[in-house]
Design a protein around this nucleic acid. Sequence first.
DNA 1: GTCTATAACCCGATAGAC
DNA 2: GTCTATCGGGTTATAGAC
Lengths: 199, 199
Amino acid sequence: MTDPRPRWTRAQQRRQTEDNILAAAREMFARLGYDRTTIRAVAKAAGVDAGLVMHYFGTKDALFSRAAEVPAGDLPHGSAEETVEALLDSLASRLASEPVASLAVLRSMLTHGDAADRYRAAAGPQLNQITASIPADDADLRASLLSAIVHGVIIERWLLQFSGLADASPDRIIELLRPAFRALATAQTPPSTTDDPNR
Amino acid sequence: MTDPRPRWTRAQQRRQTEDNILAAAREMFARLGYDRTTIRAVAKAAGVDAGLVMHYFGTKDALFSRAAEVPAGDLPHGSAEETVEALLDSLASRLASEPVASLAVLRSMLTHGDAADRYRAAAGPQLNQITASIPADDADLRASLLSAIVHGVIIERWLLQFSGLADASPDRIIELLRPAFRALATAQTPPSTTDDPNR
DNA sequence: GTCTATAACCCGATAGAC
DNA sequence: GTCTATCGGGTTATAGAC
């Protein structure tokens, strides 16, 4: 009375197993980083054999590449003010819940070259768009600083779990950062301490 | 005709060798992180035997602890404005040249628990002083954000070597960040987009 | 297709010769 | 004090049985 036909086809079954492995790998890469994540542990977490993981993905590096695929987040074009708001929106959602694949990249980027490359590749386009929206000679530096702030906050919230940032409400963080972002995105020489050498 | 008395005493010689090992370990921990730094490689870089490193420091963890000793950087007490300037001064010097021991901690903090603890211990006092100087209910969150910004900039400059931050002049970075820091350190509801629900 | 066994290598740590 | 040799364990990756 057993049905000889499988509920899923071979290809579907394989895909399902691959997804399980990738999910386990993502979680582990995000929590432990590249080096301390072992193929054996990933396989066990996914309920399969370690040899199977190698058979599917070839190498540990390839597994990381697949597990750490993160969509290139891009911002809509617009004025500096609009870009600031778009950047704050993006940050707000990443403060609410950061994708595991992205956390895997962030966790490993300081000690694994491929992860650092992935990080640069993901941040690059966003950086260019921010730069383009800022009307100033040093737009690139301003954009880099905005990007560094976003990443610093994300890292301390999700990876280091700094008290004060780990459990603060995204809205409050956004409200506090808005003036700082505006100050960076709008070119204005502060009427402050030093004299202008260009006069 | 050889002089039987050594130029240095045994204790001095040992101290010299220890310093060589620590310097090599610092450089390697800072460049590769905790996991990828091996005792063997440190010994080779220091020109000694791997067994000697173990004999001096006992374990790899203990070697890291010694190599990653970083003085607890504290800020002078003062008003919010003064604290901002002190924080900017501190950042300026860290942008000019960051100590190798500190880079070792930063490089390893996402993947090595001890390094993360060290990082929190070093950032903690500074954070408290910033918090104390800010007259606002959410002073702790504002201080955390200031700290996150500093660390984000340092990481992208020294560890990820993000173009735009890696080779920008410290002075320009400081000038750009000053308004942003002031905005965070001085409690003011922005006269901006949203209505004030507390009226 | 899936899994077991193992090869080949590198690690931290230890014991002991000199 | 310094260094050689090695132990015991872990890893990725491969080869082959079922």
